[in-house]
Amino acid sequence: MSNDVAGLYFRKLRMLHCSELQLISFYSEVAAHAADDSVEAMTDDCRERRNRLEQLAVNHGISIAGDDCQSMRRLIAASRMNLADDHASCGDLATGICESVHRLQILNYSVARSLAAKERLKDDAAELDRMLDRMVDRFPTACESVVPLAMLIEAR
């Protein structure tokens, strides 16, 4: 595996892991506003993806800790403001917030899968593909809109 692409791939795994940790924490806040149990199911999905990412890291002998994932942090902060402002349809808002954060996750999992495929890491690419397929199945409309550029630019 070339060092540059390997480094990008491992950094993407760290970023995805950090994002999943942030989402697990954030969804506990969203659940208080949701009209149904769908947020709990999404939290369980995040935990499952986190565990799979940790296993990928173990398989490669790398540490999964260390990324701050500023883009997810900013998106969650914006979503918190929307959640605080909403008083009418909390269930719809919770679903909308979940879709917006998963839009970014879908993008990042797609990049990770592409990097794994480029480096011929077939098992990794297949695992990332399964996680990505499950997100796309749960949030099909998340693929229809664009992630704002400001959410993608990492603060340096």
Results as ranks from 00 to 15, higher is better:
Y9G: 01
V39F: 01
I62P: 02
A78W: 09
L21A: 09
D37P: 01
I64K: 03
E20L: 07
E20D: 07
Q105M: 15
S25L: 12
R113T: 08
R80I: 05
R14T: 01
V58A: 11
S145C: 04
V147G: 03
M1D: 11
D92E: 14
L21W: 00
M15G: 10
M15I: 13
A112D: 04
D86F: 13
M1F: 04
L23F: 07
D133V: 10
A112F: 06
C143N: 10
S79K: 02
N108G: 13
S89V: 10
S63H: 13
A112Q: 03
R120G: 04
Y27M: 13
D137Q: 14
T141C: 02
G66K: 03
L75W: 03
F139G: 01
L149V: 14
Q70Y: 15
I97D: 00
S38V: 00
H60S: 05
L23K: 12
N82R: 11
A31P: 04
V101C: 07
Q55C: 06
D123N: 08
L115F: 05
L53K: 07
D123C: 06
D68I: 06
S100V: 10
A117Y: 09
A94H: 01
D4R: 06
I106G: 02
M15A: 10
F10P: 02
R47H: 15
V39I: 05
N51T: 14
D124W: 04
L93W: 04
D123V: 14
D68F: 01
L107K: 12
P140N: 05
V146E: 05
A77S: 09
A150F: 08
N82W: 13
I106C: 07
M151V: 08
R80M: 06
